[in-house]
Design a protein around this nucleic acid. Sequence first.
DNA 1: TAAAATGTACGAACTAGTGCGTATGTCAAG
DNA 2: CTTGACATACGCACTAGTTCGTACATTTTA
Lengths: 212, 212
Amino acid sequence: MAAKRENGRKNDPQRTQEDILDVATEEFTTHGLAGGRVDAIAEKTRTSKRMIYYYFGSKEGLYLAVLERAYRKIRTLEEDLQLSNLPPEQALRVLISTTFEHDEANPDFVRLVSIENIHHAAHMLRSEAIRDLNVSVIETIAAILERGVAAGVFVRKADPIDIHMLISAFCFFRVSNRYTFGTIFRRDLSEPETMERHKGMIADAVISYLKT
Amino acid sequence: MAAKRENGRKNDPQRTQEDILDVATEEFTTHGLAGGRVDAIAEKTRTSKRMIYYYFGSKEGLYLAVLERAYRKIRTLEEDLQLSNLPPEQALRVLISTTFEHDEANPDFVRLVSIENIHHAAHMLRSEAIRDLNVSVIETIAAILERGVAAGVFVRKADPIDIHMLISAFCFFRVSNRYTFGTIFRRDLSEPETMERHKGMIADAVISYLKT
DNA sequence: TAAAATGTACGAACTAGTGCGTATGTCAAG
DNA sequence: CTTGACATACGCACTAGTTCGTACATTTTA
């Protein structure tokens, strides 16, 4: 359906699709899946609504494409962090920093995941590409925990997925619940000093938990 | 607009409104604000669409009413926990347990907050009732932390709002991201043993953090 | 009987999706 | 290297169906 071509053309399907996906991401993350309007996307695009259906078939197809691209962008960062050379505690701190900054830098991704949860992860289930993701993080954490226990710096034998959840929950929440939390407590979570303090807190909390 | 009546009538506006709100809560938490259909709500109600507009004026008005009722239900629980008699560490554990079980028991509330965040907390901002909520929790935590530091059981001088966020993030995430997390890691977060383990983990993490 | 509560039927506006025509590029034959 | 046949890329204008909201009639209660 989507043919791939080299450059030097006026017809540039690659760019057209990217353009559509950029606009669609903005629209869906701002209004949700049901709230996002195909016409609104079409208007902000260089191209027309017809092209959206030409390339993505349907509104849901477009949404799925947006979701998959967001996940694909993510995957690259999680790999090759080279944590096995670092001492366990430091390795974990680097991993936590990375997760923290990742969520902070990708609010679109966070919002899409929130939207997916409202829809019971129905679209994620249909996408194999997305399903077998994140697994590498667990292996990374598992290795760090094992080394830590072996070296005696960590006392507690914790489940890697649980630890990932403890870290991810905090980092994710800061971004996903920014607006309600900010409204209730009148606090701007995107301020640099707040960010640094929070980054230190989740790291210290996880480390001290493992040391107890 | 909304008259209050006793019982023993065929006309029971109180019950009608509650009925509408129940159905609307279900609809909005399942499909989101934009995805929720007024006609679908009307059908599942004992009454008709006309009544929805009679009592709530508009779809947004209905949504706001749903949101406010959800918050009102919550508020009751947070008060009177009588934590000041307990030693600081135990008081904190009780508070964390309460938060944990609260989010677990009120997935509707959690979902509404998620939906609000997608809409930049726009409706919360308009509702005074909601805005000055949750403040009591902060005071409770602040008192516990002070007592803890004074007694020497807590070493770290932490910000109460930060601690609330650390706790709330984990408890909230478990419910809000249940579907995506469950899909990726093939783990059922609602299993009793998992719940107990997680409840213990967040408590231990917070306590050990404060003791370091 | 006045006021509140409720039901029915309908309409205006919106929205996802499409039919059909056009433009742009590819490739092969002459 | 021009020409013609064909495939891909694109846009306008329309449709079928949905969705929020309301006008009007009716019943119930004070």
